[in-house]
Design a protein around this nucleic acid. Sequence first.
DNA 1: AAAATACTCAACCGCTTGTAA
DNA 2: GTTACAAGCGGTTGAGTATTT
Length: 328
Amino acid sequence: MGRAPCCDKANVKKGPWSPEEDNKLKSYIEQHGTGGNWIALPQKIGLKRCGKSCRLRWLNYLRPNIKHGGFSEEEDDIICSLYISIGSRWSIIAAQLPGRTDNDIKNYWNTRLKKKLLGKQRKEQQAARRGSSIKQEMMKRSGGGSSMVPNSSNNQNPQWAPGLPPALLAPIPYSNQEPRVNDHASIRKLLIKLGGRFSQDDLPIQLHGTNAFNSTGSATQFAQAQSYVDEAELNVLQGKINSFPAELDHQEIVYNNPQGLDGLEFLCGEGMVDNIRIGTSISGTESNFWGEMSSLVYPPVASNYGGMQQGTDLQECAFGELRYHRAN
DNA sequence: AAAATACTCAACCGCTTGTAA
DNA sequence: GTTACAAGCGGTTGAGTATTT
């Protein structure tokens, strides 16, 4: 048995809003507010629209102080930075950009920002190819084989082409099987690796320097973002971890980042997750970027990440974090 | 000039979350 | 604790527009 529809679909108008409809909705809300019930609102004002549609129209277009288009470089940076930190939580990202709506940011990201970044990626790829062919040529001439020479078994090693992860060297992952899920993770990786204005180091600083984290509202929003990691997700995560093939144990789970974990199977298959460092499987000394990022972005949970980095049970840490945020 | 293709973005859909009864 | 319902959210669609061939 499915959910009851929120409105009578047969008697509801769809499609673009007319100026008359806009005026009706706007003037009513300006005078009376929403009345706390969007579903009832269209009937009150004689609009043949679904309540959800009214809400969306108001929030995205009619509400005062809405900005459209013309995203600044600063806004780009904030969006990218937050995307790295929290993924496609558009409403939370929008909360950091006054006058911007989640829909606007989402569209902007999907249509422009992502491409902008992929443009950077292509440049990096070209540079890498140039670099690797020179390297190969040099190796041929020197006659020396090396473990760094790519072959069928180790060309997913991130150490090959230093500074460029497999994600940048491989074709843009847009397979039929996993068309989008992994996109979040690979783009995040790209953002991190691209350096420059999106470099790992300046992200948190930049965010603190802007309005992103210094308002009380932001703290709440980020606590909310954290609390999205619920028990069910953790169970799924645990399942994924348990089912990891042994050869992947040098890779790193993106802690506390459910969207990064989505599509993990694919990432592992493609060798796109650099390091997995879970519990006793932790190895190597590379820094845990997500952990570090999160500890900077979400100061209250830093201790938990510390615990995880020392090999503390993942689930316990994550639950501890949940408890913290829910208690707050 | 016309057709094909690419791009943008407003709006919809369906799922999850929060909350009141 | 359970149920029902509205709000909120992110993913997706499709019409309109711009650009390329």
